[in-house]
Amino acid sequence: MTIFHPTDFSASSHVAFRHALRLAFGLGTGLTIMHVGDGRTSREDWSRFPHIRETLARWNLVDPGISQAELEPLTGLRISKIEATGRNPVEVMSHYLDEHDVSMVVMATHGRSGMAAMQHPSVAQALARRIHRPFLFVREGVPGFVTADGSLRFNHVLLPVDSEPDPQLAVDQVTWLERELAASVGVVQALHVGDGPLGFPLAPPDLSNGALKSLSRPGRPEEVIPAIADENAADLIVMVYSGPASLSERWLGSTTEQVVRAAPCPVLALPAPRYE
């Protein structure tokens, strides 16, 4: 199992790095950090990459004097830093992900919309359309569920649900996060956007102390979901996506993409299973 984190060394990318590192440490798995450059800077300048051991020591998760050789045996954390070169970052990263077993992509996104999105398309969302993997989008300006001291905060998790794609995958993912990260989840809210209730039961998450609540609200999903997340100070939105289905979605972006642009917290987007 490996978490893949693309970085452009910006401040917004640093917050995404914080989430990628904390998840990888909690899961005791691999973390691959990739920067795609144009070749004009030195490929040997590793100092630009985020500092792993210093960050973990600041979070009091490892001893300050831990060596690089000790990191994996003591924590299970396997670090790989890749300086790649190419004119099209999406192409470079897609090729890497096609060739490697990556379980989750954790990536910063600027959350642009309208004309700004047309002039500067989102690399994160373009990559998610091409790669059938779970994506954790951390939008610029959003603090997220990993605090500055490395603590995990899952007081409120929002699950937008509908009959299609099957929302149970999102419910089960919350159970998995609590168990694997040893992080207590508080309220899990299943939100159905429509004129009536969901219409079928969900198996509740198997949480230590958390509760599953249900809410139905009329309106447009891309507007209602961020609004409810903001109302409840959600720490994370988990939703299942199947990609753009209509011509308008291809132009404006799928519901998930539009939620990512406006959400006040990170969005974990889970690809719907594909059946041959």
Results as ranks from 00 to 15, higher is better:
M34Y: 05
R220E: 12
A272E: 11
W251I: 15
P273A: 08
S42P: 02
V238R: 08
T7L: 14
A69C: 00
V187F: 10
D101L: 07
R250W: 11
A84D: 07
A128R: 07
A269S: 09
L212A: 03
V102Q: 13
P266C: 10
V260W: 04
D63A: 14
A11R: 11
A272I: 02
P201L: 04
P221S: 00
A126L: 15
A126R: 15
Q168S: 03
I228T: 07
G186I: 02
L247I: 09
S184C: 10
P160C: 07
H51R: 14
I237E: 06
V102F: 04
V102Y: 05
S10W: 00
Q189Y: 05
H120G: 06
R78T: 13
A183W: 04
H132N: 11
L61G: 13
F4T: 04
V146S: 03
G141V: 06
S216I: 01
T2S: 13
Q68V: 01
G243F: 02
V102K: 02
W59S: 06
L207K: 10
D38P: 07
S103G: 10
H51N: 12
V259D: 00
G111S: 03
A272Q: 11
R53S: 00
V267S: 00
V142Y: 10
E44S: 14
S13F: 07
E91H: 11
T7N: 06
I82T: 08
T256D: 00
G141D: 07
I3K: 03
